[in-house]
Structures are given as C-alpha cells and as structure tokens.
Write a protein that binds this DNA or RNA. Structure first.
Lengths: 193, 193
DNA sequence: TGAATATGAGACAGACCTGTCTCATCACTG
DNA sequence: CAGTGATGAGACAGGTCTGTCTCATATTCA
C-alpha cells in the first residue's frame, strides 16, 4: 500500500525538525528552515503533517517513545530499585555531558505552548507522566504506593530541576546534588512506611 | 531633569509586557500587542528600550528584583533555617495557587533563548543564582559551606521541578512532595557534616 | 507500457514581525 | 509667553511567517 520512501521522508522531516527545535525553539524555527535543512519540498512536509503544530506533536511523541524505550531497557539491567533509579540518573548525566545538550525539549514546549488544551501541552504531560509512572513502579517494590508516588514526584522534580541547572552550565554540580538528594528522598520514604 | 511621566510610562510598558510574556511567551508576543495593551505609542516604547530583547531583559530584571525583595522580607520573619526555607516554599505554594499562574518566566526565557551569550539567557542565570545564593546563606547557619551549597542546589532543583509540575496541573502534589523532599535533603546534609 | 503515487521547485497570498520615520500635540518650566 | 522634551498616531520598509497551489518529475507496481 504505502510505499516505503514515504515513511523515510516523513521520519527524516521529524528528525530534522527535532534537531532544529532543540537548538532554536519552536516559534523561532520556521517551516522554511526545516524543509531546507531536511532537503525536502514544502508540499512533502505538508502532505505528511497538516500543520506545524502537528509536526511538533509528532516530534515530541517520537522523542518520548525513544526515551521510554531506553528507560525500560535500563531498568532491566539492574535488580534493586535504588540501582534502577541510579541508572536513570546515569542516563541524565550522560545526556547533560553530550555535545549538543540544550535542555529538555518538553519543558521548552511547555514554555512556548502554555495553553493546557493545546495538543503540544498535552504531549508534554504524557511524557512527564510516563517518566513519573515508571519511577513510581520501580519504587513500589520497596515501599507502599502512597510513599512511592510522593517519592517519584520528588525524583521527577529533582530531574527536571537538574536539567534546568545543567542548561545553565552547572551540569556536574546539578547531577551530583540531585543524586544525593534522591538518595535522601528514597531513604526517607522507605522509613516513613 | 527627567520628568516623572516618562518613568511611569516606561514602568507601565514593563509591567504590561510582563503580563503578556507570562501568558503567551516571548516570541509569540509582538511589539504591536504590547503597545496596544499598554495603550502607548510605538515610538514611546522604542525610545525607552532600543529593542525587544532589551525590553525582555528589563522585564526579567524587574521581576527578579521584586522576587528577591520578597524573599529577603520572608527570611527576616522567622528565625531557624528550616523555617526560612519553609517560608520560601510557602511563597511558592501561594504562587502556584494564584489565578494567573503560568509557570516560571525565567525558565520560559531559557527555553526561548538558548544561547548562553544572549543577554536574556544571562538575566535568567542571575535570577537563579540569586535564589540559590540566598538559600545557601540560610543553610550555612547550620552546616558547613560545602554541604550548604549542595543542599541549596538540591532545593533549587526541587523548586524548579515543582514549578514545572504545578504548571502541568499538579500544584498540590508538587508542593507537598517538594516540601517532604526538602526536609529529607536538609536533614541529610546536617548529618553529613 | 500505463497508471498511481510521492516528490521537487517555487510562486503566491495574507498575515505578522521588528524597527524607523514624520508630524502634530500635550505638559511642564523658565 | 516661549521653549523644551515626552508622547500620540500611524504610515512605511523590509523581512519572515504559515499554508496553498500549480506543474513537472521521478518511482513503483501491475
């Protein structure tokens, strides 16, 4: 039915848009720039995505799927909840140190699309909930659901805050303090049951 | 020398721009929109601010000064470090619950101006450093500087993360978990000395 | 070969953007 | 009153934005 080149072009547009959105933001990145960088005709893009907003949602969902796949992979590699959470922090530490780290694309999307009813806003909610839910599931192995939920929320906040600090040029101090704080939070939640 | 009406107009533009930037973002808010809302001529604005970017910096610095004034006020009202930090969380709890809460303007600015050499980026750095420095100074009353710095970084991350969660509609859970995590972090840093 | 589909290239519309310029008007001060 | 500086109103330039449209050109499959 659908020829394979179509899928390739579509994905290529998504990935090109991702790297541009990441560097320059959403509003500041024009369609013309995206199609020029992707070396694709404007109509090719608009045939795959009805509007720029829907392209943005697709980019976010694509990155969220990729992130969750990596997260689930990491969780399988070690046994204890502490080490599973540690793996998540390891992942962020590598991310912060990568050459083209520009902060969290989802947080940036939230900054530019503040309307809660906007599809982009909701795509961000999905991603953050996905991360929180995964951490909560990990923690429920060693604490009651209520404590696990609170602790997962705290870990999520630490991660988001660390990502912000990392973007401000304090990557090393951020991940270090976040790790220590995460240990304290988990230990505290374990005792509180 | 300088007639008083000039200062009033200027400040009025800053405050109008603030409320628009907060709701719609920086790139999405045009000059025409700002001057229409402020009921001011375009030249009046451009006589006070050479460019939109400099207006943005002025808005951020204005809000940062206001925030730090409130912070210093709160710190004087109670005695112990724990209660001073608690006051900061109280402040954020009220903020999250205010009718036109739209997340952190500084974090949003970082999302839209990702270039570290950009004046807007640097204005954000100033504000976040100001908050962190204040919390660090508070904590140094009960722990060594090294521990205080790490704990202040963790508290800053919790606050930034909580602000993000609050914008996603989880204000109550966010402030609650952040408070518990902050207690755990401070207690842990106190023991570690 | 023929037909269907995907793509390329670019003109085009209509709106919006930042920033400049001119000229009239207002308010205050000496 | 005369003069000075701040402001209002809006035209204007030059650029960019999203999204639509047309027509020519592959590519693929029957």
């Amino acid at each position: 039915m659908t020829p394979s080149p179509a899928i390739d072009k579509r994905q290529h547009v998504v990935e090109t848009a991702y790297s541009l959105f990441k560097r320059a933001g959403f509003h500041a990145t024009g369609i013309d720039r995206i199609i020029a960088e992707a070396d694709v005709a404007k109509m090719t893009m608009y045939r795959h995505f009805p509007s720029k907003d829907e392209l943005i949602v697709e980019v976010l969902d694509y990155r969220a799927r990729r992130f969750e796949r990596q997260l689930d992979q990491l969780a399988q590699e070690v046994a204890t909840p502490e080490r599973k959470i540690g793996k998540i922090f390891d992942w962020h530490e590598r991310w912060f140190g990568s050459p083209d780290f520009h902060g969290c694309l989802f947080a940036h999307a939230l900054a530019e699309f503040g309307d809660p009813t906007h599809p982009v806003f909701q795509a961000v909610i999905r991603q953050k909930n996905g991360l929180k839910r995964r951490m909560q599931a990990i923690l429920e192995a060693v604490m009651p659901p209520k404590q696990a939920e609170g602790a997962a929320a705290a870990l999520l906040m630490l991660i988001e805050g660390a990502t912000l600090m990392a973007q401000m040029g304090e990557a090393d101090a951020a991940i270090d303090s976040a790790r220590k704080a995460a240990d304290a939070v988990i230990a505290s939640a374990r005792i509180a049951q």
